[in-house]
Design a protein around this nucleic acid. Structure first.
Length: 354
DNA sequence: GAACCGTGGCA
DNA sequence: TTGCCAAGGTT
């Protein structure tokens, strides 16, 4: 029995019942693959179901506004994924009549579609022999072939894609690719792998050292950032501005501005603004005139590359004019998933509105 | 290549 | 508490 056949047999008997495994619609699979980027299966499932119910076809998604798309994506994170998916699907509608292209290069040229996503759509939806290497596949193949060079370096990546390509060749490439990922997710796990339950253990060169493979790449330490946020209330409503930065771009947020951390302002003199000046600056930036009030509280929000300390101010007596990037909302509207806001904004509002 | 982009679960 | 890291892509 070949490794390939052992993986297919194991997958047929052990795969989880996931909602996107009930369709071969390349658009639906595309959506699932984008949502699953760096995100756990259990988190994605309800988002995927809501998204497909609201936008069942490429044409439906293409006709939606970015605000609607981000509203359904709200809370899922990595919001640029949603904007790129939206653009990509619009391109499919405009250039390919709404049919996801079977040609791999055409798929790769779509915004937000890299080697992994292109291969996932190609193999799963079109049953083409295209390889994929995600975190699961990298771990499985690193162990099976006992690859000791670190992830992320060119030599390692090239080897992984070569091995994945060799496996993809043959019958049922979509099932084979999903078998590799499923094995990585449920058996060949990062810690405490269940080698005794592995269908390819007899062929695994790394089974005795599995837990120290793959060798991880070096990671940058999270950057500490201090932020002032202002909850501006008027008449039971709260003012939100549309973010334009890379972080939370396109989402609605309370006015925010980075300020100098407490220690740094002492050590490095006047590097950056004091918190209350940052809060006033945040209001001015979005065109809100208001009276800055007291600090309502503080919170810490941790991202992969940042550790944000947020000081939440209140402000009152607001004078502002709504436009495309400034609006007031009733806090109850935020519970319906209709407005694109981050978890951070929700946490800030929980402190500032009460 | 390295840095950047969110959130949540787990040991 | 802290660090790891999960079906990656872009710049």
């Amino acid at each position: 029995m070949t490794i390939r056949q052992a993986l297919l047999d194991w997958y047929d008997a052990n795969q989880r019942d996931l909602p996107w495994r009930h369709t071969r619609d390349p658009y639906a699979i595309w959506v699932s693959e984008v949502m699953l980027q760096q995100t756990r299966v259990e988190t994605v499932i309800p988002y995927w179901e809501r998204f497909l119910a609201r936008f069942p076809t490429p044409a439906a998604l293409a006709a939606a506004t970015e605000d609607e798309v981000l509203g359904l994506w709200s809370g899922l994170g990595y919001y640029r994924r949603a904007r790129l998916l939206h653009r990509g699907v619009r391109e499919v509608v405009a250039r390919y009549g709404g049919e996801v292209p079977e040609d791999r290069d055409a798929r790769l040229a779509l915004p937000g579609v890299g080697k992994y996503t292109a291969g996932a759509i190609g193999s799963i939806a079109f049953d083409r022999a295209e390889p994929i290497v995600d975190g699961n596949v990298a771990r499985v193949l690193s162990r099976v072939h006992r690859i000791e060079t670190p992830l992320g370096v060119a030599q390692t990546e090239q080897r992984l894609w070569e091995e994945a390509a060799a496996l993809a060749e043959g019958p049922r490439p979509g099932a084979l690719n999903q078998a590799l990922m499923e094995l990585g997710a449920t058996v060949c796990t990062p810690r405490a792998p269940r080698c005794e339950a592995c269908p390819v253990r007899s062929a695994c060169a790394g089974r005795d050292v599995a837990e120290r493979l793959p060798v991880p790449r070096k990671k940058a330490a999270p950057k500490e950032v201090s932020v002032a946020a202002v909850v501006v209330r008027s008449g039971g409503r709260v003012w939100l501005a549309r973010g334009q930065s890379a972080l939370y771009g396109g989402l609605w947020s309370v006015p925010m501005c980075e300020h100098a951390p407490a220690q740094a302002s002492l050590l490095e003199r006047h590097e950056g603004l004091p918190a209350d000046e940052a809060a006033r600056s945040a209001l001015a930036e979005v065109g809100i005139v208001a009276r800055l009030g007291a600090v309502a509280g503080e919170l810490e929000h941790v991202l992969t590359h940042r550790r944000m300390r947020v000081r939440v101010y209140r402000a009152s007596h607001a004078r502002a004019e709504a436009h495309e990037s400034l609006r007031s909302v009733d806090p109850s509207e935020l519970e319906e998933g209709e407005i694109g806001v981050s978890k951070l904004t929700r946490r800030i509002l929980a402190i500032g509105v009460s």
